[in-house]
Design a protein around this nucleic acid. Structure first.
Lengths: 228, 228
DNA sequence: CATCGAGACGGTACTCAGTACCATGTCGAT
DNA sequence: ATCGACATGGTACTGAGTACCGTCTCGATG
């Protein structure tokens, strides 16, 4: 048990030193020394100083790519809002480590930027998936894909940050609710009316019978237009 | 006319070298030498090598802050979608320079990350403004602020990127349309029905007269519920 | 005209992240 | 005993960014 892997020792030393002196005040030499290892070994295990803090975003990105590729959801937006849960679960499993990272990224601008860049990669993946799925034919389709991806990521980040700050006891439940809200933002033809959203328009004629009105009603619903 | 300012000479030299050799292959020494200036002078004018490419994001952020502070728009979302046009106009005024920067950011990961971090600062400003304006009382208000800010920024970026790629002749018109779409995403009580959005639900009874049905209809509209 | 002070510029020397390369030690297989 | 894969360590280098100091110019002031 006195043989934790070199990689682990380096990460532990790094976090300890970051807590003690701060990120910028800690050099890679310091970390390696505290871990009882050489500087070279550090860079063999982590590509950069920042990488100690963000170890496996690449794998997570790949996992999401796989999940999307094998997704059987009805719509791209739902598939994406499902895939983003992988990210949340990853953080939840990290537990206290994720919170220590959050404290660092809150204080050090360089780390915050790095985190944002990682998130942007998820968002880009989502955007491309949605755009591909929608077939980027119409002029507004591409914009919708962009908005959907941004909304899913933002909603996820919102819940994640609440959990990281300890303001949220049930992150899984909250992310469910947030994703429902996001899906409700983007109504699509043929879908049931999301509760609490949409606008109710009543067309009313008492002098005609049902069968006479049905064709016009169907046309209205298909066009999603308002009735004057 | 043979006396362009040192700052300008440095920027010109930098872009020329970035085009010739690429970003990473160009050192700050190279830039200073090409500009006929010393290395120290370079860092006196630009905080970092990346700063030559992104010179005035700080001022732009301040301009946006001012615009928001003095905004007289009816809703926070509209105020923000108005303020974001400052960013678009800034890029449009840069003209070809903005396109050269875009080519660089497309190819160099470090620059892309930097750009994304800048955008995230705008988004954060928007989010805080909207959240403050909405009074973060309700649990979902904060999430809505997040979604609104993300949508505005995404829509802006979408149009901006189209323009940068030369796919868009009328960016101002397109951003207007995109912002209308964003505003339409977030219906608020009492607003008129945005054209082309919302879901039409038709309640239909031909055997009763109008007056008998009106109370029920009003109830349905007030609850915004679906009719079975 | 002499002088003084504020800026802008240049140079040197330093710290530190990241890379390249080579040397060493360990351990299992043959 | 030898060999090869592999993890490690060391040394030396490049390049960004910082600190400090010296120089030059120019306008203001006596």
């Amino acid at each position: 048990m006195s043989k934790p892997t070199a990689r682990t020792r380096l990460a532990d030393a790094a976090f300890a030193l970051f807590d003690e002196r701060g990120y910028e005040q800690t050099t890679v030499d310091d970390i390696a020394e505290r871990a009882g290892l050489g500087r070279t070994t550090f860079f063999r295990h982590y590509r950069s100083k920042e990488d100690v803090i963000f170890p496996d975003h690449d794998q997570l990105l790949e996992a999401i790519r796989d999940r999307l590729a094998t997704s059987s959801e009805a719509t791209a937006l739902v598939a994406v809002s499902d895939a983003v849960r992988l990210v949340l679960h990853h953080y939840l499993e990290e537990g206290e480590l994720a919170r220590r990272r959050y404290k660092l990224t809150s204080r050090v601008a360089a780390l915050r930027d790095r985190e944002i860049a990682s998130v942007a990669r998820y968002q880009r993946l989502f955007r491309e998936f949605i755009a591909h799925w929608m077939g980027s034919g119409e002029r507004t389709a591409s914009l919708r894909a962009e908005l959907m991806a941004a909304s899913v990521v933002s909603a996820h980040n919102h819940v994640l940050r609440r959990w990281l700050r300890g303001e949220c006891a049930d992150p899984v439940g909250e992310v469910d609710e947030a994703m429902r809200e996001v899906v409700a933002l983007f109504p699509h033809p043929g879908a049931p009316v999301p509760a609490g959203t949409g606008t109710t328009v009543v067309a009313f004629r008492s002098t005609q019978d049902l069968d006479a009105l049905l064709p016009a009603l169907r046309r209205v619903i298909a066009d999603e237009g308002a009735v004057g």
